[in-house]
């Protein structure tokens, strides 16, 4: 059982609330770029949540994972944008 101080649990809960609002936009969005905007925002919020979880459990490995996740999600966003644009790869 991991013990986390209540302040970090509150912060993580509010971040999950924000992610829920973004998921509503992903399901509702009338066009494809709206859904991509929602996914991009979710990626940034997940990175911030990983950082908070890393400091809450005092372990460095979550922060390393957060750096790699930031770079990979950026590349995936660029590829989806290129696909929507309809150009050649």
């Amino acid at each position: 059982m991991i013990e986390i101080e209540p302040i970090y649990l509150t912060v993580l809960g509010l971040l999950i609330l924000s992610i829920t609002l973004c998921i509503i936009r992903v399901f509702k969005g009338p066009t494809a770029p709206d859904r991509v905007v929602g996914l991009d925002t979710i990626n940034t919020l997940v990175i911030v949540g990983m950082l908070v979880f890393g400091i809450a459990t005092r372990s460095v490995i979550y922060i390393d994972v957060a750096i790699v996740y930031a770079l990979l999600s950026y590349i995936s966003t660029l590829f989806i944008a290129k696909y929507l644009e309809g150009g050649e790869f």
Binding site: A32, P33, V36, D40, T44, A70, T77, A81, L84, E85
Partner: peptide, 19 residues
């Protein structure tokens, strides 16, 4: 985060306008 976030937003905006 500071380098990748605005660049991704720029890519999405350009793709949205061209589509």
């Amino acid at each position: 985060i500071l380098i990748t976030n605005p660049t991704g937003a720029h890519a999405i905006a350009r793709a949205a306008h061209r589509s």
